[in-house]
């Protein structure tokens, strides 16, 4: 099968009838990511929503080989795959680790930092749905301030979101990208490009989650779009230290006007208890981050 009008591979690697929720942002992003990665890929994934999407024994929904690993070990599992393949002299395969924000920002950060520091030749993908969604929406260090979770059920999350992209940048990686399933072509291009680099590459997927974020499944693409329009999620890539905006964020950086984060917050039930102060602070931190990006952007 070839590419279609979007210049995206027609082949589906996720078979119909997976266990992912209706309107799952991860499912949409993963669908296009796998198309870009292609068949010669070996995946490793920890306990997460993605484990559920991949399916329960003895059937899997995904037509790419995958090694499941424990929660804290994703990047180390990728290191083992890379070392093992090299040892048995198997070439031409891309090792890709995919973890949620819990498996990346929290429990998986030690193994990820280790693998990145070693320059392990693999792509680490974090799908960030901003909480422990597979266990029913608990707070993670990726949860944005003001969000209700089952472990911040009254006061909402009081702390800012950890800047994982910055942490990964501190590892001097050859390629870092931020993607969003509402912009599949941008996502597809970045995954395709990431394959061309050697060493550790990091891609973070902004992954809207209807049940966890309390919005209707039909609105996943809309929410993702609003995230970019407001600057909550910024589409960019950092190639050997050079930051550039991509896609819609590039347009916004050049001439567009970003929407107020209030529009984004109002669209999701998880922010219903957020205080006015929290919203003001969030707007401020989004603006500051945006300015920082604008200052350093090349082109």
């Amino acid at each position: 099968m070839g590419e279609n009008i979007f210049k995206i591979d027609e082949r589906e690697y996720i078979l119909p009838g997976s266990r992912a929720c209706q309107g799952c942002g991860l499912s949409l992003a993963y669908r296009h990511a796998l198309k870009a990665l292609g068949q010669n890929t070996i995946l490793t994934i920890p306990a997460s929503c993605l484990t559920v999407l991949h399916g329960l024994y003895p059937i899997t929904s995904v037509e790419i080989p995958c090694l499941n690993c424990t929660f804290a070990s994703t990047a180390a599992s990728a290191s083992g795959l890379v070392a093992g393949l090299k040892a048995i002299k198997r070439t031409g395969l891309t090792v890709v680790a995919v973890a949620g924000d819990g498996g990346t920002y929290d429990i998986g950060i030690q193994a990820l930092s280790g693998a990145a520091e070693r320059g392990t030749d693999f792509i680490f993908v974090c799908y960030d749905n901003e909480g422990y969604m597979n266990t029913g929406t608990q707070r993670s260090s990726a949860t944005p301030p003001g969000a209700l979770t089952t472990t911040t059920p009254v006061l909402t999350k009081l702390e800012p979101k950890k800047d994982m992209l910055k942490i990964m940048e501190a590892h001097s990686l050859p390629y870092i990208a931020s993607v969003n399933p509402s912009y599949p072509r941008d996502l597809y291009e970045k995954f395709t490009k990431a394959k061309l680099f050697k060493g550790t590459r990091y891609i973070q997927i902004y992954a809207p989650c209807p049940p966890g974020w309390a919005y209707l499944p039909k609105d996943t693409v809309k929410i993702g779009r609003m995230a970019v329009e407001t600057g909550i999620c910024v589409l960019f890539e950092i190639e050997n230290g050079r930051f550039r905006f991509t896609g819609r964020s590039k347009v916004l950086a050049k001439k567009g006007k970003r929407l107020s984060v209030a529009d984004y917050l109002d669209a999701q039930g998880r922010f219903r208890q957020m205080s006015r102060d929290q919203a003001v602070q969030l707007q401020q931190s989004v603006d500051e981050k945006w300015e920082e990006y604008v200052r350093r952007a090349v082109e």
Partner: peptide, 21 residues
């Protein structure tokens, strides 16, 4: 593979052994 922890050391062994090393 000079890992950053024993947890990762055993993980590397698990993944590499799965591959066939």
């Amino acid at each position: 593979v000079r890992v950053e922890s024993e947890h990762s050391a055993m993980t590397v062994c698990i993944a590499a052994s799965t591959v066939g090393a």
